[in-house]
Nucleic acid binder design. Structure first.
Lengths: 182, 182
DNA sequence: ACCTGAACACCGTTCAAGT
DNA sequence: ACCTGAACACCGTTCAAGT
């Protein structure tokens, strides 16, 4: 609050007059981030529409390093709702209805939220020491972590983040498309 | 820190002597939560093994109301690693290797993290006023939100959370199983 | 090694007072 | 209506001092 007010060249007390509480500022910041998630035009290729939206969603989250600290709060702003509307409309175009539609919407949102949060956390706040310590722990107890060792799960440059995100997104979309409500 | 120290009937300064910083306490708390995510025995039915683990993961998150505030931090504790090892081992049993394995592991983790975070946030910190305000906003602009209105996306009692989580999990598992690395 | 008490620099928010 | 300055209660962390 104090430093934000300073950036606006006012006092913190002036800021408190415009917003009710700090949480309101964070909610507004969150919705502002969603504001620059591009909403593509609806095409005949609904899975591609979903892909474009979800890629933009993830990109916007990763663009703001402090975004992970905002995810534990309600997302009910108009910008969030507009993106959700587009996402769900694309799924309806894909034949989803009722319970399948609700599940598919949540699954896609969960996927992109989880991915953005994990990636942003990883590339920001994990210092090399802690990372190396975890890798040593896994390597030292090879009997307890045979799979993680074999797959190189903690070697962060093993696979490209963008690539894995795209793979997972394809999988999720496939599972949605394969289960139309008849 | 101060209130935690009080619960331990010591001063805050005493607590600061045992841990380096507050973040360390939060990291330990996070790993502690994962400690009571049950690790099932490995069976022949690997998708069911994944389901049991992931259900327990979500349950543990929802059991601790302050868990959402901890997700924006690295998860590298031994308890987290042990659950990740089990998850990835089950996927290997399902035939996943290499890049597919990495993508599948992340997809499942992203799904359960996103779902737990969203649900916990929703049922904890969203006051009825804000919820009603968002619902009114969507209803008032029916032209902008045709799909959300038709699907009742903001009516939280429209579908059961457990049901939708299970549906989405089935979908994700199906997409993993359908894409074995040949 | 382990704990205390006092202190430091900071935080979000409020309240009277100004214009 | 909009802003200020002072103050309040709090916070994580440190530092000298104790045992």
């Amino acid at each position: 609050m104090r430093s934000l007010a300073q950036r606006l060249t006012v006092t913190a007390t002036a800021l408190c007059w415009h917003v009710r509480t700090k949480d309101d500022v964070l909610d507004l910041a969150m919705d502002q981030i969603f504001g620059d998630v591009p909403i593509p035009g609806a095409t005949d290729d609904w899975p591609e529409d979903v892909r474009v939206l979800v890629r933009g969603w993830r990109s916007a989250m990763l663009r703001h390093p402090w975004a992970p600290g905002l995810v534990g709060r309600p997302m009910l702003g108009p910008n969030v709702l507009a993106r959700t509307e587009f996402l769900q409309a694309a799924l309806v175009r894909g034949g989803c209805r009722g319970r399948h539609l609700a599940a598919a919407t949540r699954t896609l949102a969960n996927y992109v939220i989880g991915a953005s949060l994990t990636e942003a956390t990883w590339r920001r706040s994990v210092d090399p020491d802690a990372r190396a310590a975890a890798r040593d722990h896994v390597a030292a107890h090879a009997d307890a972590y045979p799979t993680l060792n074999a797959s190189g799960h903690l070697d962060d440059d093993r696979w490209d983040d963008d690539l894995l995100f795209e793979d997972g997104l394809d999988g999720v979309l496939r599972s949605v498309a394969r289960h139309p409500p008849s």
